[in-house]
Design a protein around this nucleic acid. Structure first.
Length: 701
DNA sequence: AGAGTGGGCCTTTTT
DNA sequence: GGCCCACTCT
């Protein structure tokens, strides 16, 4: 039987509550925060105070007497969870650490560690990051003895996407291949075989990849009715943020956990669904009212973030989206300046423009902290980084390799991983291959012997293993044995272990391998000091495996440094954030939207939503720029402006012509040289059928 | 046989 | 800048 949990009437006991909700919230937000319970769908437009609403809702629940550990708050990033919970803490002025809050993966990890035995793992399992998983998949391809040359067989990355897609969507592998990867259809049997080997190998070595954290979590609840009931009883209120980016597995898990009390509040914006490539199913939010017919639907449409001018651009873009909850953002702020469209000749000139404009804005009194540069893909940040460096403008890049995915960090962590889970073949392989004369083959032989031993680490430090070491490599290997012995003694003190590794022969390896070894050594020190806050190796490894890009930044600068710097980020990573001044670059058709999506309707819809996300990050000023000429690996390519700019009515923006390019510095060109003569480029080769040759000079009119 | 090196090819988005 | 492949070195 379903049983409704009735909240205490907050207004009836005025004076008892610390927070004056009526005063703090808008008329749109108040009913959401003070609702009694039951299924709730909140469609929250960009900048509509979603975080504030969820935060107050949690505070309200706590004030109404719901015990902390009976609230489940699932967010998209750890950062969002941390931010919301610390705001709740500030509102209530009490410790709220009892609340179950975090990402799906984080909470899945917690539950799986507790009940690992029930699904055939032990609680010290290792979480594979993307590249570890890729490596294991490639090893599985080898094990399957597939002739990858006879027919183009998918690479590790592609296989990983296929497998992850199958797990996250709950669809059969055959299905996924047939519909989404038709080019591999003749290889279906082989791919299934690899999947089987990969799955078994993970089980054998006590490894879980990101998708497994969700899949086995669901399986655990689905296959253990008592356990499912236990957690179902436990969570009186379930809140899910960014619901538009959940996949069907995540939705299933939440439905199971909320089945008992049916107090499930999902918050999201279908127009900001941008993660379908990893299985997000934006119909979860569209269909939520069908799954819960007794749902109460709320809309937050008043935008408190951006000027009406910026919202006009956002609304123009999204009105053309095919499937959505009807909504239009209503401005709540006074009029500001019009967004600016800036065509530039080259990417270097685009970079110079951004940098120069930043300096001008700073002269006018804006801090660099108020500025961000957004782009579609990582590689589009290269020239900007060079230009900002050249001009001494401090910046923080939030894309590309994450801190803990850099080789030296992964090397050190691999040492810790084998101490925690000695059957982790990926981690053993990694550290063994660091030693001279040990490559994939020898590393595998050594691992096989370790795996058979009852205590792999003891086996490694023993005499017998030396038989497998190639002659001439004994000395470094013995030093490595010494290190492992030392780590065994320091087991349980992560910071000490990191210190031992970075003072071992590994330090020499860094010096001889990397030109910037000094920086890398500093990173390791940083990692060591970061580790001191963890009580156990397991906690540290879990936190690092599940940290997202932005959180890893905090490890690099120690978390406290408050220096002035602008931010460079992909649009995906910018979701949920805001800046007074935003530069959106590379708005050339084929770059944003990406040409890879051109022929796929769903993906084109998602590109549009991505553009909507990008534009709505800006509070006061928005610069939309694109380069006309792109020099790539296959010559120079002429581009035209993005279709999203094409669609804008001319009243919606100002166009700036950049005539002189004082700071234009293409490598090999001098600053005082004349600017590029565009007429040279009229006849150049144009890449792909989707680009049209156009007279560049027309664009400047 | 297996480890190490250099050159050519290509570039979506991530917990 | 990364990945793959072909090549050389031990």
């Amino acid at each position: 039987m379903t049983q409704k949990y009735i909240l205490q009437p907050a207004f009836g006991v005025a004076g008892k509550l610390k927070i004056d909700y009526r005063q703090a919230l808008t008329p749109e937000q108040l009913p959401i925060v003070t609702a009694g319970g039951g299924p709730m769908l909140v469609i929250a437009g960009a900048g509509s105070g979603k975080t504030r609403t969820v935060t107050y809702r949690v505070a309200y629940l706590v004030e109404s007497g719901v015990p902390l550990d009976r609230i489940l708050l699932v967010t998209f990033t750890n950062k969002a969870a941390k931010e919301m919970l610390s705001r709740v803490e500030a509102l209530l002025q009490r410790d709220v650490r009892g609340i179950w809050g975090g990402t799906f993966h984080h909470i899945g990890n917690l539950m799986l560690r507790k009940h690992a035995k029930l699904i055939g793992f032990t609680s010290n399992f290792t979480i594979l990051d993307r590249s570890d998983a890729k490596e294991l998949i490639e090893a599985s391809v080898v094990e399957a003895k597939i002739d990858t040359k006879a027919r183009r067989f998918p690479k590790g990355d592609a296989l990983q996407d296929i497998f992850g897609f199958a797990l996250n969507t709950g669809r059969h592998l055959t299905d996924i291949i047939a519909y989404n990867y038709a080019q591999f259809e003749p290889l279906t049997l082989e791919i299934e075989q690899v999947f089987k080997i990969y799955t078994e190998r993970k089980k054998k070595n006590n490894l879980l990849d990101f998708d497994d954290l969700l899949y086995y979590w669901w399986k655990l609840l689905d296959s253990q009715p008592e356990l499912c009931e236990h957690y179902g009883n436990k969570f009186l209120h379930v809140l899910v943020d960014e619901y538009q980016d959940t996949n069907s597995l995540q939705a299933k898990i939440m439905n199971l956990l909320a089945a008992k009390h049916r107090n499930i509040m999902v918050v999201g914006d279908d127009s900001q669904s941008i993660y379908s490539f990893r299985g997000a199913y934006f119909r979860n939010i569209i269909n939520f009212p069908k799954v819960y017919p007794d749902v109460t639907v709320f809309k937050l449409e008043v935008n408190h973030r951006s000027t009406p001018e910026i919202l006009a651009i956002a609304n123009t873009a999204i009105v053309l989206a095919k499937e959505k909850f009807e909504k239009s953002l209503k401005a709540n702020r006074p009029s500001g300046s019009k967004p600016v469209v800036v065509p530039l000749t080259t990417v270097y000139e685009q970079s110079a423009f951004v940098a120069q404009r930043m300096l001008e804005l700073r002269e006018e009194g804006h801090s660099l902290n108020d500025m961000a540069v957004l782009y579609r893909s990582h590689y589009q940040s290269m020239e900007i980084q060079m230009e900002l460096t050249k001009r001494g403008i401090p910046f923080e890049v939030r894309s590309g390799l994450r801190f803990f995915e850099e080789a030296h960090i992964k090397d050190v962590l691999a040492h810790l991983k084998v101490m925690h889970n000695p059957s982790d073949e990926i981690a053993w392989g990694r550290i063994l291959k660091l030693l001279p004369k040990i490559g994939p083959k020898t590393a595998d032989k050594i691992f096989q012997q370790l795996y058979r031993a009852s205590e792999p680490c003891k086996e490694l430090t023993g005499e017998k293993i030396l038989e497998l070491v190639p002659s001439g490599a004994e000395r470094p290997f013995k030093q490595f044995q010494g290190l492992i012995g030392e780590l065994l003694e320091k087991q349980g003190q992560p910071a000490e272990m990191i210190k031992a590794i970075s003072q071992s022969n590994y330090a020499d390896y860094l010096k001889t391998t990397y030109a910037n070894y000094r920086e890398r050594q500093e990173d390791l020190e940083q990692l060591g000091s970061y580790a001191t806050q963890f009580k156990s190796l397991e906690e540290l490894l879990s936190a690092l495996a599940l940290a997202s890009g932005m959180e890893s930044e905090n490890i690099v600068d120690g978390g406290e440094a408050e220096t002035e710097a602008c931010v460079l980020t992909t649009v995906h990573q910018a979701k949920g954030l805001e800046w007074p001044i935003v530069f959106l670059i590379w708005l050339a058709d084929g770059r944003f939207p990406s040409y890879l999506s051109f022929n796929k309707e769903d993906e084109m819809e998602e590109e549009r939503r991505l553009f909507y996300v990008a534009v709505t990050r800006a509070k006061d000023e928005l610069y939309l720029s694109y380069p006309l000429i792109y020099s790539g690996y296959d010559g120079e390519v002429l581009m035209k402006q993005s279709r999203y700019l094409e669609e804008l009515p001319s009243w919606a923006f100002d166009k700036w012509e950049v005539e002189e390019s004082p700071a234009f510095l293409k490598p090999g060109r001098q600053a005082d040289e004349a600017p590029i003569d565009l007429s040279e480029y009229r006849e150049i080769r144009v890449k792909g059928a989707d680009f049209e040759a156009i007279d560049i000079n027309d664009l400047f009119k």
